[in-house]
């Protein structure tokens, strides 16, 4: 069964206060984000719970959650660090595909998978609005721009 942590409950109260009661479904994205942070994934149970709180249908929650790549739907948590490679035009022209392959080989996983030690999850991502610094990758909430194989080594090695 899914339940929000005590910390998350406090956050939720703050978030819901921002919106008029009639429009509380506006809190959908923040609540999904809280869930993703807490669990490392968004399970059907969690979606049902969010739907109940915001008075929308669970299907609607899934519809929104599945639109965004930052949520991992399903029952499997992601690794401690989620590495997202932008694969849109600017990054692509600057060679993100090779860098993605490089990272996958280095971590010894396929794109979309999580390492055996549950440390890294590697995924493709649509535009992350950092086109000036392409190619780029995002590790959890941190943007790394103008990356090279050497920078990738350095960044990954620095993560504990």
């Amino acid at each position: 069964m899914f339940a929000f942590s005590e910390q998350a409950e406090k956050e939720i109260e703050k978030i819901l206060n921002k919106y008029p009661e009639k429009h509380k479904q506006s809190a959908l994205l923040p609540l999904l984000t809280l869930t993703q942070r807490q669990e490392g994934h968004v399970s059907p149970d969690a979606m049902r719970e969010i739907a109940r709180r915001l008075d929308v249908s669970p299907a609607y929650v899934q519809s929104v959650a599945s639109f965004y790549t930052m949520y991992t739907l399903g029952d499997t948590p992601v690794g401690k660090y989620t590495i997202l490679f932008c694969i849109n035009i600017s990054c692509q022209l600057n060679g993100c595909d090779e860098l993605l392959d490089y990272t996958a080989k280095k971590l010894n996983i396929q794109v979309g998978e999580t390492t055996a030690d549950k440390k890294f999850t590697l995924r493709r991502e649509e535009c992350l609005a950092a086109c000036t610094g392409g190619p780029m990758m995002r590790v959890n909430d941190t943007y790394h721009e103008n990356i090279t194989p050497a920078r990738i080594d350095q960044i990954l090695d620095s993560l504990k």
Binding site: M47, R48, A59, Y60
Partner: peptide
């Protein structure tokens, strides 16, 4: 008005579906 049937996913992967 019960939003049981929704569009899931995005772009090329957009499809009609239900919760879970």
């Amino acid at each position: 008005q019960d939003r049981a049937l929704v569009m899931l996913n995005r772009g090329f992967h957009n499809e009609v579906g239900t919760f879970n």
